[in-house]
Amino acid sequence: MDLGAVSWRFVKVWRRNLWTYRRIWKVSFLTPLLEPLFFVAAFGLGLSGFVGEIAYGGRKFDYPTFIAPGLVATAVMNNAFFETTYASFVRMYYQKTFDGMLATPLSLEEIMIGEIVWSASKSVVAAALMSAVLAVLGFVDPWSVATVLPIAFVGGLAFGALGLWLTGITPHIEMFNLPVFLLITPMFLFSGTFFPVSSLPGWAAAAAQVFPLYHLVELCRRVQIHAWESSTAGSGAYLGVFSAVFVVLAVGAMKRRLIR
């Protein structure tokens, strides 16, 4: 990655995506508004009678409260990851949007950073809407509608960069099924979203901490239900380093793919 090629101009790429998003925002807003209602209905009304209380971070929570921050973290992951995989792939491969941009003063680095920051912005919007619904329902601290936003942004950068790196190395759009099945689904299930990682066997609990989603869930729980089991600074640093590494990898992969 050439740092001399990075400037504020990435905002122009972000703006292009915002412009097209304005057409479909009503549909895009539905998912984060309705999804928590579905989950809370299913797990709160259906499952929580079987589960009882969850012990986590030295306190006890009813089941819907425990999973509420996990739902927000998952939405952050999904919004960023699916934006920079399927949506970016369409822009890169089918619409040749990046080829058009590369004939302007924009650098490849700026285009890719614009895509990743855009995906993180979508994560922020989803986290805000979802947290607002969960706060109204009384599952999360109402202040966390604001405090979760920087966490959603960093989490969005991490999963957006991971997704864009995969886009850079994926030969065909249907191949994304593979990382979704091997990476996103296990992360969704084993990152402490639905049960505390500490209830797993020792080796599995340690393995879960490699997942970026684990750290994102930890941070969301910290601000939304004020409980945690890992170091907050450690989780923040993990997501920061993860983002930086995958931004560099994504730019490198795209350079090999687009500049021939």
Partner: peptide, 22 residues
């Protein structure tokens, strides 16, 4: 190849592209 932006209208294509030039 056609590198026009299919997500945008005809005039939006010009406006947004102008933005890339500042």
């Amino acid at each position: 190849e056609n590198t026009l932006d299919p997500d945008l209208s005809v005039q939006e294509n010009l406006w947004i592209f102008a933005g890339y030039f500042g």
